[in-house]
Amino acid sequence: MVKITEALVRKKSEHNECLISTLEELSLHQEDIERIEHLQNWCRDLKILLLQSNLISKIENLHKLKKLEYLNLAINNIERVENLEQLESLTKLDLTLNFIGELTSIECLKGNYNLRELILIGNPCCDYPHYRDYVTGTLPQLNSLDCEEIKMSQKLQAQKTLSSHRAVIVQKQANYFIERDEQKLRVAHKKTELEAEMAEVDDEDSRIKMFWDAKSEHCPETRTDIAKYHKLGREKRNTEQHDKKMHRTPALFAPCGRPYNLNQAKLPFHLSDEYNEYMLQLGIYKHLDTSQIKVDIEPNYVRVSVKGKLFQMSFSEEIKTTEASVQRSQITGYLVIKMPKLHVNEMIIVRSRQQGNNVNYSSTKEGKGQSDLKGTVDIKTICNNEDVDVPELID
């Protein structure tokens, strides 16, 4: 059973900055809610309340919503109209595709003087003789019934024949009540038999298939069971998708602890290996929201998560993580990560022995897996501080 919780209401009130005390419109459709509760205490300023496509069986706990103008309870399990007398501002009431057989229950709406639109399409009561004339005569304040305009002449004619039509309606709904009681017993018996057959099957998929293949009647009990099995199906799909994601999660480290190089998202990148820092340029999608990007800089590797897909690169030299910076271009969307090296002074001499001091790595075809040596390094020009002792290099 799904309940109306404060967390759910706040989630649905994002357009009002998640404030529920001043909320004027609330949509809780398709949530498998079975009971109306709390709303009249939390959201007393509501003018529009949408509760269609749920499993609500009774109209209740709404009498404090004095400002409510539009109530939508279409596609629920409601069997009678009730508890709406104190909704003074109610203008439109939608009860499409419910199970209302007690048509005389609409008489509780006589005091709702502002009510102008009533929709009962798809309810059993719509098949009763003189249905439209009875509703029109009972609720003369209506301007529209089942999305059809009610003319003044129709109202006057319905008033004249109201008593005779009501007698017919009462007899028809009494017959409906008898049929409904028989239906409840029949549906309960079939459900017991089906559950006994399903209990003999071990495979869950086969049990679910047996339910969907079984014949059923159109009634509140069946609609509730259908919602239950729809929920099971959704949970099963979510579990399977989660398992697939867990299965696809790549190994991030070798058995020895060395970080792997990964590029799940297949993003273009360029790495500059300067003498004092690494600079990584990552080709993030231009219109991707920055909230979808996560960066983790560790002493010997950097990891970037883009919409859950990982890019990871390891380094041979340690990084000074406290001074690393991450920036994103507002024009191209590219991510620029600057990572200063930890032991810069110690590496100057070692670097000077190499033929070049710039090594660039790129994901392009021309530069993939290769390095470019650019120029030579003069140790005297680098270490021009008098306090630094520069040892002689041995050829």
Score class of each variant (00 low, 15 high):
Val295His: 07
Gly122Thr: 01
Leu267Lys: 06
Glu200Cys: 06
Lys110Ala: 09
Gln327Val: 05
Ser89Cys: 09
Ile382Cys: 07
Ala196Tyr: 07
Glu386Ala: 10
Ser272Trp: 04
Ile56Gly: 00
Asn114Thr: 10
His63Asp: 15
Asn54Trp: 01
Asp378Met: 05
Glu88Leu: 10
Asn72Met: 03
Val306Pro: 07
Ile4His: 01
Ile169Lys: 02
Ile59Arg: 09
Asp202Lys: 14
Lys338Gln: 11
His242Phe: 12
Asn261Thr: 11
Glu200Pro: 00
His38Met: 08
Met339Gln: 02
Val326Pro: 01
Arg132Glu: 14
Ser352Met: 02
Gly356Ile: 03
Gln157Gly: 00
Glu346Gly: 15
Tyr361Pro: 00
Asp372Leu: 14
Leu26Asn: 07
Asn263Pro: 03
Leu310Tyr: 09
Pro299Phe: 09
Glu235His: 10
Ser272Pro: 00
Leu288Tyr: 06
Leu90Phe: 02
Leu8Arg: 05
Ile284Ser: 08
Ala188Thr: 12
Leu49Val: 07
Thr96Arg: 12
Val306Gly: 03
Tyr301Ser: 07
Gly257Glu: 05
Cys43Trp: 05
Trp42His: 06
Leu71Val: 02
Tyr113Ser: 13
Gln157Pro: 00
Ala227Lys: 06
Gln171His: 08
Arg328Thr: 00
Leu95Asp: 04
Glu117Arg: 09
His343Tyr: 13
Thr249Asp: 08
Leu139Tyr: 03
Leu282Arg: 04
Thr376Ile: 10
Glu298Lys: 15
Leu62Lys: 03
Lys184Asn: 11
Glu182Cys: 13
Arg258Trp: 12
Asn360Thr: 11
Leu8Asn: 04
Glu69Ser: 08
Thr239Arg: 15
Leu335Met: 04
Gln327Glu: 12
Tyr113Gln: 14
Thr161Gly: 00
Lys231Thr: 12
Leu87Lys: 06
Gln154Cys: 02
Asn385His: 13
Arg116Asn: 09
Leu49Trp: 06
Trp42Glu: 06
Ser153Lys: 13
Leu115Arg: 08
Val9Leu: 02
Phe269Leu: 08
Asn98Thr: 06
Lys228Pro: 00
Glu25Gly: 13
Leu26His: 08
Leu73Asp: 04
Ser316Leu: 08
Phe253Arg: 04
Glu102Val: 14
Asp389Trp: 12
Thr161Phe: 09
Ser371Asp: 06
Pro268Thr: 08
Ser144Lys: 14
Ser144Pro: 00
Thr376His: 14
Gln327Trp: 05
Pro124Met: 04
Thr136Arg: 03
Ile379Phe: 00
Asp389Ala: 11
Ser305His: 03
Pro268His: 11
Leu39Arg: 04
Asn77Ser: 07
Ile150Cys: 06
